[in-house]
Simulated assay, not measured.
Amino acid sequence: MVTTAATPWTAQAASVAPSKNSVSGGAVPAPQAAGAAKPGAEAGKTPSTGLGAAAIVVLSAAAQARLAESGGPGVSRATSLDDLVRERTKALADRIGGAMARANIATDGPMTFKLDGSGAITTDGPARKAVETLFKDDPDLAKEFKDVAALHGIQAMQKVLEALERETKAAKDDEGRNAAHGRHTVRLVKLQSVSGMMTLDAGNLRSWSVALADAMVGEDAPGATAREAAARTA
């Protein structure tokens, strides 16, 4: 089961899974960790970071099936995590926008939602009370927000895990590998501080977790959300 509170992912020791893993089958495979000692090799040859093993998200088949639900009777056609996140995020943005329109909730620019430690969805601004009541009175909408936030957390975690694997492989010695693990730990702490946060702007819903992960690993040119997230956690 995916945890959708403050930390929307389950972590355990393993190596990073490819970003294009199918979400239509069983659990995501967990290959042997990069740099792990082979059977019979001396344990002392594996560099120790003092920070614990690399973490990877592992979804059970039941969890994958639940997350693949599109919020309606239709079946999701997503074949990868990226496709699933994109599909569910667009549907949620449309659903939130429609609910706010029906409730006559007007917005003057971007609105940021946050999933707090108690599982409540909060926001700020003049429409704060109306929006928070909207989620409170619609459990299905709140559940969909939590599920999509969990998917974004998984996607962000996967990005920093892939960065760890690249940096570990590129390291020339134990010092370099230890430094890579140190950077990875810092990234995890920063991701934790923005987990469950998404911003609705002009009909588009963007994840702070994914934006921050992109900014930290340098995969994409960081946009305004990424810069704001990085500044918040610096």
Score class of each variant (00 low, 15 high):
residue 3 T to K: 10
residue 3 T to N: 04
residue 3 T to Q: 08
residue 7 T to H: 06
residue 13 A to S: 08
residue 15 S to P: 00
residue 15 S to G: 14
residue 18 P to Y: 02
residue 18 P to V: 07
residue 19 S to P: 09
residue 23 V to D: 07
residue 26 G to I: 13
residue 27 A to G: 15
residue 27 A to M: 11
residue 30 A to N: 12
residue 31 P to K: 13
residue 33 A to L: 12
residue 45 K to H: 10
residue 45 K to A: 14
residue 45 K to Y: 08
residue 47 P to E: 04
residue 50 G to N: 04
residue 53 A to K: 09
residue 54 A to I: 08
residue 56 I to C: 14
residue 58 V to K: 05
residue 60 S to Y: 01
residue 61 A to L: 09
residue 66 R to L: 09
residue 67 L to C: 04
residue 68 A to Y: 10
residue 71 G to A: 04
residue 74 G to S: 14
residue 81 L to A: 02
residue 87 E to S: 08
residue 90 K to F: 08
residue 92 L to V: 12
residue 93 A to L: 02
residue 93 A to K: 10
residue 94 D to S: 15
residue 94 D to G: 14
residue 101 A to K: 14
residue 104 N to E: 07
residue 104 N to V: 08
residue 108 D to F: 07
residue 109 G to C: 01
residue 110 P to N: 07
residue 110 P to E: 07
residue 119 G to C: 09
residue 121 I to P: 11
residue 122 T to K: 15
residue 123 T to F: 04
residue 125 G to V: 01
residue 130 A to Q: 11
residue 133 T to F: 02
residue 133 T to K: 14
residue 136 K to N: 02
residue 139 P to E: 02
residue 141 L to D: 11
residue 141 L to S: 07
residue 146 K to D: 08
residue 162 E to Y: 08
residue 165 E to R: 08
residue 168 T to M: 08
residue 172 K to E: 05
residue 174 D to T: 05
residue 175 E to R: 14
residue 176 G to I: 04
residue 178 N to V: 10
residue 185 T to P: 00
residue 187 R to T: 10
residue 192 Q to E: 12
residue 193 S to I: 11
residue 202 A to H: 13
residue 208 W to L: 12
residue 210 V to L: 13
residue 214 D to P: 03
residue 215 A to Q: 06
residue 215 A to N: 10
residue 216 M to F: 02
residue 217 V to N: 14
residue 222 P to S: 04
residue 223 G to F: 01
residue 225 T to P: 01
residue 228 E to Q: 01
residue 228 E to F: 00
residue 228 E to R: 03
residue 232 R to D: 00
